[in-house]
Amino acid sequence: MFRKYIRDYMDTYRLYYMKQLWGDKEKRELLFFLMFLSILLMLDLKGKGIIVLAIFVPMFLSFFSGLLRPIRPGKMMYLCPMDRKERRSYIYGDYYFRISLHMLFAVLGIGVIVLFFRCDMLSVLEILLNDFMITIYIMPEQKAINQWKISKEEQMKIFPQEMAIILNSIQAVFVVKEQGAVFSSNGDGHHLIGKGIILLVFFLIELPLYLKYRKYVKKELEDAVFFEGGAK
């Protein structure tokens, strides 16, 4: 069962979406931003490469999986003999497997940081929360390859992911700086309270976004059960 999901997960990466992705102005800007951010961090955080990798690898895996593995299966899957219940279970199963796998990578990454470096639990929570936000990502309007278009309204739907990526990048800086004791939390109660407040603010921003996004995800998953999205 697990092997089947792994195989399906690998088989349904649609790398040719990169081409369309590159053709989309807004997405290209986001990709440039992410590349720029990564290079900047790599240069700034030299010597702490493992921390950067432990945070960024799971994050980018989730992000690109969201972009390149649409939750809507290819047309052939709608032609294969399955009843609606089976197709629904296939779509939901694949989606939940994707979230579980990405979160496993995220937890492993965080585990490395917790075990070998200094990192407080608030940062761990924040990073995992952001990883979760990124991994539940569903690219809007992927009904067909040639329908790769993101309207302004749809831009808002992917805003939570973009925000989570930025927040995780900031957290990566915090975690790395902590290693140099710049923001040492070692016995510094004031710092922990300050960090707790920042985390609470982030959380209060992300929570309503997540709740709103959850409805959108559920609708997209239900629509994906039918080739003609939304038909019942």
Partner: peptide
């Protein structure tokens, strides 16, 4: 009978 129909169609 979507499943049974699709089982009988080659596309």
């Amino acid at each position: 009978q979507e499943k049974q129909i699709h089982d009988e169609i080659g596309t």
